[in-house]
Design a protein around this nucleic acid. Structure first.
Lengths: 123, 123
DNA sequence: AAATTTATGCAACTTAGTCGCAAAGGATCT
DNA sequence: AGATCCTTTGCGACTAAGTTGCATAAATTT
């Protein structure tokens, strides 16, 4: 029953149920984006995937959570924060966060994903 | 029977079959990344999706073609060229190419995907 | 406490992409 | 040319992440 999570939901008019609390607590502890499988494994309780995805969709609409696709055909989720970039390594599939200076861009940028080989895999 | 396509395949030790020629010609004419469905529709002949994906995988390994995922759970393909970024609009799903200056990054960056709202959809 | 709304879980479904296998197409050798 | 071998193609079955319908459960309202 995290204080920050309660206020976060209250701010966005989202009722805080058990399922929602479980998802948000995992995301809050995470240091990088996680997939459904990864989030499920980090929860102390079981949750149906339909419940998970429906609540994630709710969070997304509210702007609390942000998602993007990696190159393994899975979606990765994280709490919205500062717009930072993710580097996905094509070899080891590790996702790391990084800062990128974009300069001026027309429109609104919500996510930046770089793919390639991380420094370890690139030798 | 494009001259450039023939030399491209010869350079990478890839035998130029009818199917491969069809795929590469569509990609060569394209001004932005295309999905399997889009490429199929632009071809004058029919092609099985297994054939398509197998040849695309071959092109990828050779470094001729580059792919990435949009937010519609589809892969988009384009001929490899200069490392440029793609902006995917979450609202109208249009993909546009843009130049981004990254500065120095450790490892090797192969693709950059920005998501958000394009200037039209952002008003 | 009954009625209404909202959230959850199960199972069936959707769909982009993959895989096994047999047939077709080329290349090579005698 | 004909026989043999290897590669490519197409068909159909399969895979798996994510979605949807529907019935039940849990809140919320009256």
């Amino acid at each position: 029953m995290n204080e920050q999570i309660q206020t976060l939901c209250k701010e966005h008019n989202i009722k805080l149920t058990t399922a929602r609390s479980l998802i948000l607590e995992v995301l809050k502890r995470a240091s990088h984006p996680l997939s459904y499988e990864q989030i499920k494994d980090k929860m102390n309780a079981s949750m149906d995937k339909a419940t998970f995805y429906r609540n994630i969709a709710l969070f997304e609409e509210a702007g609390i959570v942000h998602k993007f696709e990696s190159d393994d055909r899975k979606w990765y989720f994280e709490l919205s924060g500062t717009t930072h970039a993710h580097f996905i390594c094509e070899h080891c599939h590790q996702i790391t966060c990084m800062e990128v200076d974009l300069g001026k861009v027309e429109g609104e940028v919500k996510s930046i994903v770089l793919k390639g080989l991380c420094k370890e895999c690139h030798q």
